[in-house]
Design a protein around this nucleic acid. Structure first.
Lengths: 245, 245
DNA sequence: TGGATTCTGTTGCACGATGTTACATAGAAC
DNA sequence: GTTCTATGTAACATCGTGCAACAGAATCCA
């Protein structure tokens, strides 16, 4: 499974920090946000699998933000509130939240709810691997998922190793979204190919990326397709057109 | 998140200074102005997210300025006044102010009101990094935001590091406006993460500025573009022409 | 089965980008 | 002038990444 990315929205810095830290220690990517603008940035700019949204955001209204997100996106939302009255809870559900937690909460409970919502929506599993698609086009290249063939812009067939193919698939499924090495490594294992231990120690992903670059980049020294996001990971930086054959 | 730019209009220098200083300490860019002419300069010349407008401006009338701004712009305005009588308050709203604060006020209250108005109008999202603009021209130079290319007046391509590029972007978005090191550092932290690596200890910004100067100034020893504001920070001191491609 | 071939992870080094530090210098305050 | 503070900058330190070389694992094939 890909690593879930959770947007933690709370205007209280201590609270925000506590929650992000805890979530990070428990195998998720926690993205802090303090207000609506920051929520926008994350939602619009990158992938977010779940939003933990405080009801009371200073002067802003968490419920309103929730309503808006719901209207335009279908990202799962868990409302968090210092008010545990049932009326509040109902209001949370009314605006479309997937779950509701009252502060102060047991961290384990939070984790349980998070896991529940993530698995319920199966969103975390849906982001990397697409189904029912057979071919991908990107900057002149063609990858046929069914046969596994890769054709260069000059229509020359390229052979990729199994691992390289898996990497390409992960990237093709997430164009323009920076993926960390850990996310890539985890996704590669999910494909069920090699079960070997993940990237605990080393630079396997780096080397794998380099090898793929050598095969699909015109000038591997100056990659245009598979770009490096320093301090983050790698991005598939071109548009991908998906066909159903 | 973008740093909000707040225009502080008050003819009393102490008051002006106190307010700008306080706002700057709280993560905003505060632009001082003492009269209508200076207000004009800022409003017309650069981005302003919020105006803090004193009702009593010597001979000029804050209410009148507010009315005019309202008529032609939709920048949010908070009226500030030594007179707390309700009639005054009503008058403030009548001319279109978004909020009203009576002097003397609690700084925290001011901050709260400012945040409230900023988030309400969602103006804080219109930030240092402009969108939908692809190229910037300044004193013969050309920076293409899309490709990241920088062309010198002699049409020679210059390569900037990632950090240098980010700095240039921040400066280009704020021509003629002195930015403190802290403001710059904050703006450079696009990730918004808990980055420990910000300018707590060091002179990173100074050195970064020096490196950018070495690349874009004709004579780095006597900078004409990226000037130092002693005791303040740095200014991008030339006009910037923005194109949409 | 055993050897050849291919695949893949590990390691060490190079290199560029960036932050830190120490010192020199410029400017302001007196 | 002297003194103090802010700034410029060279030199160094650190970190992330690319990559060649190596070694073990997997696969192929006679």
């Amino acid at each position: 499974m890909a690593i879930p990315r959770i947007l933690v929205v709370d205007d209280d810095m201590d609270m925000r920090q506590m929650m992000t830290q805890f979530l990070r220690q428990n195998g998720t990517i926690a993205l802090p946000a303090a207000n609506e603008a920051e929520v926008r940035t994350h939602i619009d700019g990158g992938r977010v699998d779940l939003v933990l949204l405080d009801v009371m955001l200073g002067d802003e209204n968490g419920l309103e933000i929730c309503r808006q997100l719901r209207a335009e996106q279908d990202v799962p939302i868990i409302m968090v509130s210092a008010l545990s009255a049932d009326s509040q809870r109902m209001e949370g559900y009314a605006v479309g939240a997937d779950d509701y937690i009252a502060k102060p909460f047991n961290p384990e409970l939070l984790l349980a709810r998070v896991k529940a919502v993530l698995s319920r929506t199966r969103r975390s599993a849906s982001l990397v691997h697409r189904r029912n698609t057979n071919s991908f086009r990107f900057s002149g290249w063609l990858y046929d998922a069914k046969s596994g063939e890769v054709l260069s812009p000059a229509h020359i067939q390229i052979t990729l190793s199994r691992r390289e193919t898996a990497l390409l698939q992960v990237l093709l499924a997430n164009p323009h979204i920076p993926l960390t090495r850990e996310e890539i490594a985890t996704s590669l294992d999910v494909t069920g190919e090699t079960q070997t231990a993940n990237e605990a120690s080393g630079r396997a992903i780096d080397v794998l990326v380099g090898r793929l670059r050598n095969k699909i980049e015109t000038n591997p020294k100056d990659p245009q397709i598979l770009k490096t996001e320093r301090g983050v990971g790698y991005v598939f930086a071109v548009d991908v057109e998906v066909s159903e054959t």
